[in-house]
Simulated scan of single mutants.
Amino acid sequence: MTIRLTAALAACTLAAPALAQDSYTVALDGTFAPHAMPSMSGGVEGFNVDLANIIGERLGVEMDIVATQFSGILPGLAAGTYDFVVAPTTITEERAGNVLFSEGYLNTDFQFVVAAGTDPVETLEGFAGQTIAVNRGSVYDSWARDLADEIGWTVESYGTNTDAVQAVVSGRAFANVAGNTVSAWAAKQNPAIELSYLYSTGLVWGMPFQKGDEELRATVEAVIECLKVDGTMTMLSEKWFGVTPAEGSAAVTPLPGWGQPGFEGFVEDDHEPGC
């Protein structure tokens, strides 16, 4: 189902190459809060919805945002159903062999939440002897279980991450671990919990394009770079995650070239953000 959203954030016009079309069809997972989730009006809302609409505003084009299951998004891109993907997509070597990535725009790390008022935990070892709640079958579930003997924590799995967070609230678990943006959203919504230790994966989210579509990739990436420079990405992070991006993080740091350095599809270039 295609959901056409009216952009709600004002933005400056970006000087960019002439575009071949006046609208783009882009895809995201409409159930991945706080990046995209059902809104009270019947559409979808979230960080990546706002981001997509702002990109459209800066380019002077209409964005047709399709909310669908993530499993079908990259195949849809390959088939030409979508012009590019605005769903959070981790840049990996395997994926970079099949799609053309923009530079990263958000770090994708693991973050713990604990009961509000809990003493700070500065290392993974600080969770030794504690019970860690996770979403069953998630990457955080397997990661925590792989470290159980090394760290000395006990892992309990729940059907949803919401249930895992509730285990912390009720005292059945000391902490929950999930993606950093999901954890930040949970803490923003629930004053009974707060953010704790952040485990850096070194990975980032980028926007996938079709192989060979370097021109559109560069056009959109130029906008992303300006959103990093002019504070828009910071504003979106604070709005949806309640977190100000750290200095040097992907949300505020434009990168040289086009694409993510170190991955297939990266093109060296000495351009400066043209904001």
Score class of each variant (00 low, 15 high):
E272A: 13
P256M: 06
V204C: 05
E62C: 02
A167I: 12
E103R: 14
G152Y: 02
G60Q: 00
Q130E: 15
T89N: 09
K211I: 07
V182G: 04
L9I: 14
I55W: 03
G179N: 14
G179R: 07
P38N: 03
D230G: 06
F101G: 13
N135E: 15
L216S: 00
S102F: 09
F112G: 02
A128L: 08
F266N: 07
K211W: 00
D163P: 06
A251T: 08
R172K: 15
T253M: 09
G202M: 10
V169K: 13
V168N: 05
V44M: 00
L5E: 06
G206L: 12
R217P: 07
M37S: 14
P254Y: 04
E122I: 13
Y82S: 06
E194H: 02
F101S: 08
R58T: 01
E194Q: 15
G30A: 08
E57M: 00
G274V: 13
D270R: 02
K239I: 03
T131S: 14
E122C: 04
G242T: 03
G257S: 01
C12N: 10
T25R: 12
T162P: 00
A115H: 06
A167T: 05
S39C: 11
D119E: 15
T6Q: 12
Q69E: 15
A192D: 15
I224D: 03
C12T: 12
V44D: 08
V177C: 09
G76C: 13
S170Y: 01
L14E: 11
T253A: 07
L100T: 12
V155T: 13
D109H: 14
V49E: 10
A192N: 11
E264M: 10
T253F: 13
G126N: 09
T219C: 01
A184F: 03
A246M: 00
A20I: 08
V177A: 10
L19A: 11
G42Q: 03
A246P: 03
G179T: 06
G104Y: 11
Q260L: 08
G206P: 08
F112E: 04
